[in-house]
Design a protein around this nucleic acid. Sequence first.
DNA 1: ATAGAATCCCCGTCTCACGT
DNA 2: ACGTGAGACGGGGATTCTAT
Length: 293
Amino acid sequence: MPDLNLLITLDVLLAEGSVERAAKRLHLSPSAMSRALARLRHTTGDPLLVRAGRGLVPTPHALALREQVSRLVQEAQAALRPAQAVDMAQVERTFTLRTSEEFIECFGAALLRRIAQEAPDVRLRLLSKTDKDTAPLRDARVDLDIGVVDPSAGPEVLTQALFRDRLVGVVRNGHPLSRGTVSLRRYAEGQHLYVSRRGQDRGQIDDALQALGVTRQIHTIVAGFATAIALARDTDLIASVPERYIAQRNELFCFELPLSLPTFSVAMLWHPRLDADPAHRWLRGCLREVCGP
DNA sequence: ATAGAATCCCCGTCTCACGT
DNA sequence: ACGTGAGACGGGGATTCTAT
């Protein structure tokens, strides 16, 4: 069994790129740190840091290890941190959340009320979610991401499902589709709105239709569900939006899509570094309450 | 000359086997 | 169960090596 303390040493050495600075940070003498580096070299079978002038430069193997080691150390620290209770009434903190506008429209007000009940000095910075990049979670620019779970998010982030949702069709009240059954033929014959944040021009509905040998005409592509709803309200265009989002609106006619689509899971994602953080844990609990059934 | 890494030597601590 | 000694290991200080 290798000495796992060496992980901490390696993390600091790779972060500092210097035996002397790493020694300072871990309150060791430079000689002790140099010896620790020698042990790391022996254990990993790689020089890790090699002399370049007066300093040290990392080997390719060290560069490849850097993120993994950093993550492991942070996770270990989180796991060993005592789970102390926190008085949220005393906590002054701003959490940065990244999520879609429709999530905020559905749950934002309830979330703020829930937070204010217990933590009057906790504030939220709400950023719009334009991609699934997990880098902002990793480098602490974002505390919590909320969105549809992407299996490719990788093991680097932790996720917890908030609720399941599905797409339903939406048209203005009085639209021809609001009378009678919405058959596959009637649905496909209409003019459609397609919501794409990343500029695609077709999506899973089109794929599902194609599998049934049908195509629909996408008349307009928009970047968000709010825009789609605004347009559907005042035109004959047909939108497809998440059911939870449309549930609170009665100015539109809502119908089951005449095709079977998989449901999707809306989840929160966070970095392991924050997993044991009591205030972050509390915030996650608030979200679960607000989004709960 | 200087700064920083590596090495040598010595010391303290811990583990383990062994004897009482 | 307890004490003891050998050996491993890791730390610090002094010194050496190397590049600037």
